Simulated scan of single mutants.
Amino acid sequence: MSGTPRFRLAALITAAAAVITLAGCSSTGSGGSGDAQTGFVAGNGGVDTVPVASRKAAPAIEGKDLENKQVSLSDFTGKIVVINIWGSWCSPCRKEAAGLEQSYQKYKDQGVQFLGINTRDTDPTNARQFESNQGITYPSIYDPDGTQILKFPKGSLNPQTIPTTMVVDRQGRLAARAMRPVSIYDMDAILEPLLAEQHS
């Protein structure tokens, strides 16, 4: 059995993914005391929002997508961006995937972009197969070690909670989050008020 550092890292990532899968892919709790710093206000059904005056800039998320093309959050300046953090090994991620794609198709012509962050998949082939099986057409950044996730401000999300969905407003600020699987109805409830803000 190989004892190389690369092998050990892959084994650790795989083991961590297995533990989270057995736990339903998510740990309990939220960002905790950091919520006060990031401005999130607990809402109904586990969807938290940030009042306009308290919103803070989203981090500079970027990387190669699953087709090895460079993509970054800044590519979508001026749009509302739904960032879904997922893994092919995560059962709740599979359950929400079809609804996310349905919401993307519904809102993409209204100035809304969806962007995935695929995490803890040691082989991008698994992630590509997931997207193919689920019919996902929006891009996902391949982030096996969680580098992009850790860019989010402390308290804005729990990196151990997969899936998580973060929503960035048209001004590039964190506006909403759901640290659980989301439905098409959740996305309607999040996106409709943000779309209305352009007229306020």
Results as ranks from 00 to 15, higher is better:
4 T>E: 09
5 P>A: 05
6 R>S: 01
6 R>C: 00
7 F>G: 04
8 R>K: 06
8 R>H: 03
9 L>F: 01
9 L>S: 00
11 A>K: 06
11 A>E: 08
12 L>A: 14
14 T>G: 03
14 T>M: 01
16 A>M: 12
18 A>V: 10
20 I>S: 08
20 I>Y: 12
20 I>A: 08
22 L>Q: 14
22 L>I: 11
26 S>G: 02
27 S>H: 01
28 T>N: 01
28 T>V: 01
29 G>A: 01
30 S>F: 05
31 G>H: 05
34 G>L: 02
38 T>G: 03
41 V>L: 10
41 V>F: 07
42 A>R: 14
42 A>M: 05
43 G>I: 04
44 N>S: 15
44 N>W: 01
47 V>E: 11
47 V>F: 10
48 D>M: 00
49 T>M: 15
49 T>S: 15
50 V>M: 10
52 V>R: 15
52 V>L: 15
54 S>I: 12
56 K>N: 11
56 K>A: 06
57 A>N: 15
58 A>F: 12
60 A>Y: 01
62 E>A: 14
63 G>R: 13
63 G>P: 13
63 G>S: 13
64 K>T: 08
65 D>R: 04
66 L>K: 00
67 E>C: 00
67 E>G: 02
68 N>Q: 14
68 N>C: 00
71 V>N: 10
72 S>T: 10
74 S>P: 05
75 D>T: 02
76 F>C: 07
76 F>R: 03
77 T>S: 14
80 I>V: 15
81 V>D: 11
82 V>P: 13
85 I>Q: 06
88 S>A: 14
88 S>Y: 11
88 S>L: 05
93 C>F: 07
93 C>D: 08
96 E>R: 05
98 A>R: 04
100 L>M: 11
103 S>M: 10
103 S>R: 12
103 S>Q: 07
109 D>N: 14
110 Q>D: 14
110 Q>Y: 07
111 G>D: 03
112 V>N: 09
116 G>V: 09
121 D>L: 06
122 T>M: 08
123 D>F: 04
125 T>F: 04
127 A>I: 04
128 R>H: 05
128 R>Q: 07
128 R>I: 02
129 Q>V: 05
131 E>A: 07
133 N>S: 11
135 G>C: 10
135 G>K: 12
138 Y>S: 10
138 Y>L: 11
139 P>I: 06
141 I>K: 02
142 Y>H: 07
142 Y>R: 04
143 D>R: 09
145 D>N: 03
145 D>C: 00
148 Q>M: 14
149 I>K: 10
150 L>V: 02
150 L>P: 02
151 K>Q: 12
151 K>L: 13
154 K>Q: 09
156 S>E: 04
156 S>N: 03
156 S>T: 03
159 P>C: 04
159 P>S: 09
160 Q>I: 06
166 M>G: 01
167 V>I: 15
170 R>E: 08
170 R>C: 08
173 R>W: 00
175 A>H: 13
177 R>D: 12
177 R>S: 11
185 Y>H: 10
187 M>E: 15
188 D>H: 13
188 D>W: 03
189 A>S: 15
191 L>H: 15
193 P>W: 15
195 L>Y: 13
198 Q>S: 13
